[in-house]
Each structure stands twice: as C-alpha cells, then as structure tokens.
Write a protein that binds this DNA or RNA. Structure first.
Lengths: 214, 214
DNA sequence: CCTACCGATCGGTAGG
DNA sequence: CCTACCGATCGGTAGG
C-alpha cells in the first residue's frame, strides 16, 4: 500500500514510520482532505496550500509526507481502489445466486460513489487523466481485478439468460451508468441509495419469469 | 448564439462583427482548438497560451475575442449543445416507431461523443464544474431541452412495455452509460460506432417478442 | 491582432 | 513540521 510512496520519501519519514508513531495518521488525513478537495474542485483546481490548510498544516508541510502533488493524487486513487475492492469482495462473500450477488455488487458500488466521505473513487473516475502514466500503470492491475469481479457475475447472468447481449459490453454499460450517478445523484432527492441500487439493478437485468409461467 | 459573448467584448470587436468580416471565423477556430485541448488536458490543464498557439496567435490575442478564459469554456459547451440538439432533432425527424427513434437517438449521441472533432459535449460533461454558475444557468435551459427529447422517446417505450422501470431513472441510467463510453471507447478497437450504438440500444430495451409468440 | 509587460499564484525547497 | 523563500507560469492588460 505504501510501496510506491516509500521509494521517494525523505529518510526522516521512513524512520518515523518504522518507529510506529502517529505519522501515518497525518498522511491519511492529508489523503482524506485531498480526496474531498479534488472531487469538489478538481486536481488542478486544488492547491497544495488548500490541502495543507484543510488539515491544519502550513503550505510546505504536505511535502514532508509526499514527494509531489501527483503522489497525493495517486494515494487518493490507491485508497479508493483498496476500499472499493474490500467492499465489493465483502458483498460477493455474502453468497446467494448470481442475481443476489449482482444486486450486492451494484449496491456496494453506489455506496462507494455516493455515501458520505466516498470521494476516492469519484476522483479516480474524473481525474484519471491527471495522473502521470507511471502512476497509472501501478493502478491498472488493481482496476482489472475490480472489473473481473463484475465480469464474473455478469457472465454468470448471461449464461443463464438473465442478462442480454455481450457480457463485456454489458459490464461497460452498467458500470458507466452507475458511475455517472456520481454527477447527478443528490442525497436529499427523496431516493435512498438502497432504492436507487435496487431499481437500477432491476433495470439492467432481463425480467425474471414469474413462477409457474414459461 | 453570440449573445453572452457580445455583452463583454471590446467595442472594436462588435464593430468588426457588424461589418461582417472574417472575425467570426477566428473566433470559431479558437473554440474548436479549445474544445480539443480542454478534452485532452482539462480546463485548468490548458493555458490560454496553448489555445493561442494552436490557432497561430500570440498569447494575449484570444482576449481580443473573449473577455476571459471561462468565456471560452462557455462557448465550447454552447457549441456542443447547439450541435447536439440539431443532430438529435434531425435523428428524431426521420420518424419511425418509438424503437426506431430510440435507436436513432442513441446513435446520434454516440456520434456526438466519439466521432472525430466531437470534443464539445465531452468537455461539457467532464468540465461542467469549472464553468462559473452564472454561465451554467444559461446552458441549463438548453440541456433540459436535450433531456426532454430522450424523456419523450423513453416514456413512449415504457408505455408500450418496451422498456422497464421508471422512465426518468431509465433516462439517467441510459445517458450515463452512453456518456461514459467517452472514457473507454477506442476507435481502433474493432467495434464501429454503428455497431456499438446498435448493441447498446438493444441492451437497454426490453426484448422484443418474436412474431407469432405471446 | 501583436508587443511588452505586470501582479498573483503555485509547486516545491533549504535549513532548521 | 515550520519559516522563509524562489523560479516559473499564468491570466490578463495597455497601448499601438
């Protein structure tokens, strides 16, 4: 998790971390504040001074924790993928048939996008181009694992006639539809995240045959 | 179309336009170049110098045509909506049943997002937050007209059992899925825009009953 | 539309 | 992690 960051940090920082003091908490606070600001104002629209002020530091101090601004962006996205994978795997671990697991995955992903403090994945979706290619490569492997979770469930649904079309296209369309909710969903709009997830999942699935019909 | 810009432009510019010379061409060239750059690098990642250089001007010259950088962004989005509305209305004007018009609308929108030189609407989708609120208000009315075109066709499909779920949610999910293709679709990927549009529209529609079954 | 320029801001650093 | 600072860049302008 800290592999990429560790390579370019000052020696003093590495010592502090090894000593097990509270340094990691400050780093996590920076990442959290940066995620919120990057989501609200974009990467280029957020200054390192903004991030520092949000955690009560002076303007130069974030560079004690990160070699440069891009590394903060990388840390935000890495944290998003970590949380997203953990949450999605937990959803799938509850078991049930393909339909139930699909519901759980849709609900988990809406949560990652729309719940309070869930700024990490939206930043990854909307600021991806700002991340230098060298950093991108490190995240793509993790993104692929995330996509594979979806692909597995969708392929299962397709095989049993519960979802139409090519499974890969289905995955891209479904994830696109869900991801775009980050731009239009308002929590005070009367629709809960649970209800949104349920209705969306139903929309994507082929209608279930009522028992006793054929 | 030029209403918003005209208010804040230098007097010399207004005179030139009224005289009917080629000034408008230079302005259009700036908007086109800005659209491409904003899409590639984002609004904050693009400098006015970049835009000027792309059309063979010196760094200060775009300000002869636009009062400030935000006004260039506004012009890009305004042009995108103008083109998008014209193209969508043309698609609908071809007539046919609701299913055929839905296909035409999906195809038109994919074109607006994915064809060469179609940078205007992607900029609107991905740089919307960068546009100052006063400018946003002017565009929302046009955006609403665009949404209404989709809502009409989708409501018709829903009423005839060819689309499931709440029509408004269906519109948001479908447009989200289509819009997100701007981030993943590669023209050299072997899938044509036509084929993508056909397969996607089929995915969203409830299965058509085969003739002779019930 | 160009020349020449300015004030402000920003990412980043040295040294403690 | 702070103080004090720098070099570069950027949006924008005056005057022609």
């Amino acid at each position: 998790m800290a592999t990429a960051a560790a390579r370019s940090l000052p020696r003093a920082r590495k010592r502090a971390n090894a000593a097990g003091n509270g340094d990691a908490n400050r780093r996590a606070a920076i990442v959290r504040a940066a995620a919120r600001l990057f989501r609200e104002r974009g990467f280029d629209g957020t200054t390192v001074r903004d991030i520092a002020a949000a955690v009560g530091m002076r303007s130069g101090s974030p560079f004690y924790h990160f070699a440069n601004k891009e590394e903060i962006l990388f840390a935000v996205m890495e944290e998003g993928l970590r949380q997203g994978l953990a949450r999605s795997e937990a959803a799938l671990a509850q078991g049930g048939d393909a339909r139930a697991r699909f519901f759980a995955l849709v609900r988990a992903h809406f949560g990652i996008l729309l719940e309070d403090g869930s700024d990490f994945i939206p930043v990854m979706l909307y600021e991806w181009r700002r991340l230098p290619p060298a950093y991108r490569r490190k995240l793509i492997a993790v993104k692929d694992r995330y996509d594979a979770l979806w692909q597995g469930v969708i392929a299962e649904l397709a095989a049993s006639g519960q979802m139409r079309g090519d499974p890969k296209l289905a995955r891209l369309l479904i994830l696109g539809a869900v991801n775009f909710a980050a731009t239009w969903f308002k929590r005070d709009g009367g629709l809960s995240i649970d209800a949104l997830a349920r209705a969306s999942a139903e929309f994507f699935l082929a209608p279930r045959r009522a028992p006793g019909t054929r």
